[in-house]
Amino acid sequence: MIDLDDTDRAMIRALAEDATLSAGALGRRFGLSQPAAWRRVRRFREAGVFRGHRLECDNAALGFGVTVFLGVKLATRGRTGLGDFERAVQAIPEVQTVEHVLGMYDYRLRVVARDIADFERVLRRRIMTLPGVGSLDANVLLSEERRPGPLGARGARVQDATS
């Protein structure tokens, strides 16, 4: 685990909102020189704080108007192992995330579809035919708000102090 000060947390939050910020822009925003900001970002990368670079797509703009969270309970854990299920579910393009969870279900899937009829097709033809699927529970996403994450509360004070 990396030790972070308030400026580090604020910089990470800023980069999480806009990964294209340059070291110069970060330095100006947080009262640091460009080299000092760059050294902090390099330290974050070396410590594994960042996991790759991603582009967030708007599913609705791409024609996927429905998002469903599926709880999946596997029927058996003997012959059909977790690995078989994981490999098969990852091949379904409509499944955005596969999370192995503890609790009522074994997996939680985030599935996108064009509409409810399209989701039903994906469910019947692809998901329900996966190896080991026992029971399913579906929750349709109505709205989604971005949460600030673990650095939000503490970092907010820093931003006010440096503005």
Rank of each mutant, 00 (worst) to 15 (best):
H53Y: 13
G52N: 06
V68T: 06
R126V: 08
E99K: 04
E86R: 02
V111W: 02
R54L: 11
V89H: 07
R51Y: 04
A60G: 01
L130T: 13
P131C: 11
G48L: 00
V133S: 07
V122T: 15
R110I: 06
R87D: 11
T129C: 07
T97S: 04
A75C: 14
R42F: 09
R29H: 00
E17Q: 12
A25Y: 05
G71V: 13
R110D: 04
A113W: 04
I116H: 13
G65Q: 08
L102I: 14
F50V: 12
R87G: 09
R54D: 10
G78L: 14
R29G: 02
L62V: 13
A36C: 05
R29N: 00
G134E: 10
R28N: 08
R28I: 01
R108V: 02
T67P: 00
F30C: 04
A19Y: 11
A88S: 02
L82A: 15
F69D: 08
D58V: 08
D115A: 03
V112H: 12
L62R: 12
I92H: 08
I116T: 12
S22G: 07
E86D: 09
A60M: 14
R43D: 05
R114A: 04
L32V: 07
A91S: 10
S33E: 07
L102T: 14
G48R: 00
Y107S: 04
A37V: 04
R87T: 13
V101I: 11
R108P: 05
E17I: 06
F30M: 03
R110N: 01
A75G: 13
I127F: 03
L102D: 13
E46I: 07
L123Y: 15
L82E: 15
A37W: 01
F69L: 10
T20L: 10
M104G: 15
E99S: 05
L123R: 13
R108F: 07
E56L: 14
G71T: 14
A36W: 01
V41L: 10
G132W: 04
G132Y: 03
S33T: 10
V98Y: 03
W38I: 01
Q96N: 02
P93D: 00
A61H: 09
F85G: 03
L82I: 11
W38H: 11
R125C: 12
E86S: 02
R77C: 15
Q96S: 05
L62Y: 09
R77V: 10
I92Y: 06
I127N: 01
A19N: 12
